[in-house]
C-alpha cells in the first residue's frame, strides 16, 4: 500500500479544513415565526488531507459527513472556519472560482441510479466535463478520450453508445467515476460510493478506486456510514457524530485501539459474518438515538447515549486531544 503518505516530511496538505462550521437556516418555528430554527450540521471540524492520501469520514445519517464534503466542494455556504486547497483559501469561493476548482475537485455520488441523467448516453455523460470546460469542442472530438476513460474504469468501449438503464449498479458507479476523472482532478470526494451496491460488487469498486489512486496519486475524502468498508481504502479515519469529529486516527488505530465510546459502539454494531464469532462477541450497544440537530445538548453531543457519561460531559464539550501518535479523540473520560 502506498500508505502513510501524510507522514512524509515537507509534504503540505492538499486540502486543509480548519474549524469548519455549517449552520442551516431551517425557517422559523411558531405561528408568527418568532423563533429561528438553526440546524447545526457541522461544528468546528478540522482535518487535513495530503496528496495521495485517503481520509475515511464515517458517521451515521445526520452526522454532517456529507455536508462537510460538500462544503469543501463549495456547494454549501460555510458559516465559520476556513478551507484551503493547495494552500489557497477557498472558504467563500465565488461561482467562477468554484467552477475553476471543479477541474481539481470532483464528487462521486452514492446512488448510481439517480446520479446519471436517464436521457443522456454514457458518452455524453462522461464527456460533459470536458465539454463545459472547453477541453473539447464537441462530442465527436471527445470520443477517444471517453473510450480511454471507460477502459480505465473497466467498461467496454462500446458502453458509451448506450443509455444508463442498460447497466447494472456497479457498472453505473464506474461511469460515475469515469465522469469524475475526466478533468484529471487531484481530489475526489466520494460520498458513500458503494453503499448502494451489492456486496460482491462493492469490492470491485473500492479496489478500482484504490488502483486509480496509486496510478494518479489522487486524494480521496471517502465518506461512509459504517466502518466495514472504509478499512481497506483509508489511510486515516475520522469518526463524526452529530456534527463533531469525535475521533481522528490512523486506520489501524481506529480498528485495533479505538478510544471514543462511539467509535467502539460503531465497531461492534457491524455484525461479523460468522455465527459463532458473532454470538460470542461482546457487543456495546448504545441505546437511544442521535440528538436533534436543531437543539443539540450543551456539552458532549454523545452524552445521552454514552455508557461512561459524567457531569463534566454535560457541562462542557470535549475537544480533540492527542492520545497516541496519530490518534486524537474528543472525550473527557477515555
Amino acid at each position: 500500500m502506498t500508505g502513510q503518505a501524510h507522514n512524509r516530511p515537507g509534504d503540505s496538505p492538499l486540502v486543509a479544513v480548519k474549524d469548519l462550521s455549517v449552520l442551516f437556516d431551517a425557517g422559523r418555528a411558531g405561528f408568527w415565526g418568532g423563533k429561528r430554527l438553526i440546524v447545526h450540521a457541522v461544528e468546528k471540524v478540522s482535518f487535513d488531507i495530503h496528496p495521495g492520501e485517503t481520509l475515511g469520514l464515517v458517521g451515521e445519517s445526520g452526522s454532517g459527513k456529507s455536508t462537510t464534503g460538500r462544503a469543501i466542494l463549495g456547494r454549501v455556504p460555510v458559516s465559520e472556519g476556513q478551507i484551503f486547497f493547495q494552500g489557497k483559501e477557498i472558504t467563500h469561493a465565488g461561482k467562477n472560482q468554484v467552477r475553476e476548482l471543479s477541474r481539481d475537485m470532483q464528487l462521486v455520488f452514492q446512488d448510481p441510479y439517480a446520479s446519471l441523467n436517464p436521457r443522456m448516453k454514457i458518452i455524453d455523460i462522461v464527456a460533459e466535463p470536458l465539454l463545459v470546460h472547453g477541453v473539447v469542442k464537441n462530442i465527436r472530438e471527445a470520443a477517444k478520450e471517453v473510450a480511454r476513460l471507460l477502459e480505465l474504469v473497466g467498461l467496454p468501449p462500446d458502453a458509451g453508445a448506450r443509455y444508463p438503464h442498460a447497466f447494472s449498479g456497479g457498472q453505473r458507479q464506474r461511469v460515475g467515476i469515469a465522469r469524475a476523472l475526466a478533468l484529471k482532478p487531484r481530489f475526489i470526494v466520494a460520498d458513500e460510493p458503494v453503499s448502494a451496491l451489492d456486496v460482491s460488487i462493492r469490492a470491485q469498486v473500492v479496489n478500482l478506486m484504490q488502483d486509480l489512486q496509486s496510478q494518479f496519486g489522487l486524494s480521496y475524502l471517502f465518506i461512509a456510514h459504517d466502518l466495514a468498508v472504509v478499512r481497506h481504502i483509508s489511510h486515516r479515519i475520522a469518526i463524526m457524530y452529530a456534527g463533531n469529529i469525535v475521533e481522528l486516527a490512523d486506520r489501524d488505530l481506529i480498528y485495533d485501539a479505538p478510544v471514543h465510546p462511539y467509535t467502539r459502539a460503531l465497531l461492534s454494531a457491524v455484525p461479523v459474518p460468522d455465527p459463532p464469532v458473532q454470538r460470542a462477541r461482546q457487543r456495546i450497544t448504545c441505546p437511544g438515538e442521535p440528538p436533534n440537530p436543531l437543539n443539540p445538548p450543551s456539552g458532549c453531543r454523545f452524552q445521552s447515549r454514552c455508557p461512561y457519561v459524567t457531569q463534566t460531559c454535560r457541562d462542557a464539550a470535549p475537544v480533540l486531544t492527542q492520545r497516541r501518535s496519530g490518534q486524537r479523540a474528543a472525550c473527557w473520560n477515555c
Binding site: 470532483q106 464528487l107 452514492q110 441523467n117
Partner: peptide
C-alpha cells in the same frame, strides 16, 4: 443527484 452532478462538473 444527476443535476447536482452536472453542477459539480461545472
Amino acid at each position: 443527484p444527476y443535476v447536482e452532478a452536472a453542477e459539480v462538473v461545472g
